[in-house]
Amino acid sequence: MSVLIVIPARYASTRYPGKPLVKLRGAGGQARTLIERSWRAACAVAGADRVVVATDDDRIKTAAEGFGAEVVMTSDTCVNGTERCAEAHEALGGGYEIVVNLQGDAPLTPHWFVEDLVAGLRRDPEAGIATPVLRCNGEMLSGFKEDRLNGRVGGTTAVFSAEGAALYFSKEVVPFTGRDFAPDEATPVFHHVGVYAYRPGALAAYPAWPVGPLERNEGLEQLRFMENGRRVLCVEVESRGRQFWELNNPEDVSRLESMMAQMGLD
């Protein structure tokens, strides 16, 4: 089953303009752009047949080609990464059986997250899209709550059925927990990892659907699938001791660099 990984990247981010070209310093002191680190993470995924960067910006195109990435130029009308992935897949002529959206702000995504995600979608023929979720420990949950208390948009949380069907995604911390947890204690809150695997039919249908109220209010693209009755599969993944975070705000640069230093990632 052929797998295409698309890394959507745009320069004109509302919260953090120019984010893909922000440099992050690794454990050995090597500074690489966010888009390069995300591309390297994608290239480490076993079973991927092709990896491309999809952008509408010549600055990102030049930078990506400079470190050896294949680039697909897409329109500036794409409102999110899923729409950009759909356009990139079409521009490449289609034909892939699974398209993975590895968003360009998640350079610490372990390769097994994506591998487990693809395997989960293959096992569930009723799902048109799959996405990974990671159970929070007390330390991670505290970070989520601190971000919200300080008015920052941190990670996204997910709730899902016993069979893995998504029930809701939110930038708030859901479900509500009425107590504190020890740093290493497992919690009932799941961090949604911003990676998606689509079947081509669901991906191609997505841009034609209007933006619904849930997607508009939360700013979460995956809610459009749910608002249009499509099954979204949540695949639980294991951290295996790896720390994980996306770059959502300028304050996250130091957080990511600290994580890379602790894990010895250059």
Rank of each mutant, 00 (worst) to 15 (best):
residue 190 F to D: 01
residue 70 E to W: 12
residue 104 G to S: 12
residue 173 V to W: 11
residue 33 T to P: 00
residue 225 F to P: 04
residue 258 S to T: 14
residue 222 Q to P: 11
residue 22 V to L: 11
residue 188 P to V: 04
residue 136 C to P: 10
residue 19 K to S: 07
residue 163 E to R: 15
residue 37 R to L: 05
residue 23 K to N: 05
residue 45 V to M: 05
residue 52 V to D: 10
residue 127 A to L: 07
residue 141 L to T: 10
residue 260 M to C: 04
residue 61 K to F: 12
residue 260 M to N: 04
residue 103 Q to N: 12
residue 130 A to H: 09
residue 216 R to C: 11
residue 184 D to C: 01
residue 34 L to C: 02
residue 48 A to D: 07
residue 233 L to C: 11
residue 79 V to F: 02
residue 120 G to W: 07
residue 207 P to V: 12
residue 6 V to D: 09
residue 172 E to D: 15
residue 218 E to P: 11
residue 105 D to Y: 02
residue 147 D to C: 14
residue 122 R to F: 13
residue 263 M to D: 03
residue 108 L to H: 00
residue 27 A to W: 01
residue 6 V to M: 11
residue 89 H to N: 02
residue 229 G to M: 09
residue 189 V to Y: 00
residue 140 M to I: 06
residue 153 V to G: 10
residue 57 D to E: 13
residue 155 G to D: 09
residue 32 R to A: 04
residue 112 W to Y: 12
residue 149 L to K: 15
residue 162 A to L: 05
residue 261 A to F: 02
residue 141 L to S: 06
residue 253 V to C: 07
residue 35 I to W: 02
residue 167 L to A: 10
residue 63 A to H: 08
residue 184 D to Q: 07
residue 44 A to G: 04
residue 128 G to V: 09
residue 131 T to N: 13
residue 243 Q to H: 08
residue 87 E to A: 03
residue 130 A to N: 09
residue 1 M to Q: 15
residue 175 P to V: 08
residue 35 I to D: 01
residue 206 Y to C: 03
residue 90 E to G: 04
residue 35 I to H: 02
residue 87 E to W: 00
residue 60 I to Q: 07
residue 185 E to R: 06
residue 95 G to I: 01
residue 200 P to Q: 03
residue 78 C to N: 14
residue 190 F to Y: 15
residue 230 R to H: 15
residue 5 I to V: 15
residue 149 L to V: 11
residue 203 L to I: 04
residue 201 G to N: 05
residue 224 R to H: 13
residue 54 A to C: 13
residue 102 L to S: 03
residue 87 E to L: 01
residue 33 T to L: 03
residue 77 T to Y: 08
residue 146 E to P: 00
residue 217 N to W: 14
residue 5 I to L: 12
residue 37 R to S: 03
residue 106 A to D: 04
residue 145 K to M: 15
residue 13 S to A: 15
residue 224 R to V: 12
residue 249 N to F: 07
residue 34 L to T: 02
residue 249 N to I: 07
residue 217 N to S: 14
residue 128 G to D: 08
residue 202 A to I: 10
residue 135 R to I: 12
residue 203 L to H: 01
residue 95 G to M: 00
residue 248 N to D: 12
residue 203 L to F: 06
residue 254 S to P: 06
residue 265 L to R: 04
residue 107 P to N: 00
residue 194 G to C: 14
residue 141 L to Q: 11
residue 252 D to N: 06
residue 98 I to L: 06
residue 106 A to K: 05
residue 266 D to F: 03
residue 182 A to L: 14
residue 44 A to L: 08
residue 226 M to L: 15
residue 142 S to Y: 06
residue 22 V to P: 06
residue 167 L to C: 10
residue 46 A to K: 15
residue 44 A to Y: 05
residue 20 P to E: 01
residue 76 D to Q: 10
residue 148 R to A: 14
residue 241 G to Q: 02
residue 53 V to C: 03
residue 6 V to H: 11
residue 4 L to K: 13
residue 123 R to Y: 05
residue 75 S to M: 09
residue 57 D to Q: 12
residue 26 G to T: 01
residue 159 V to L: 06
residue 29 G to D: 00
residue 225 F to L: 13
residue 240 R to F: 09
residue 210 P to R: 05
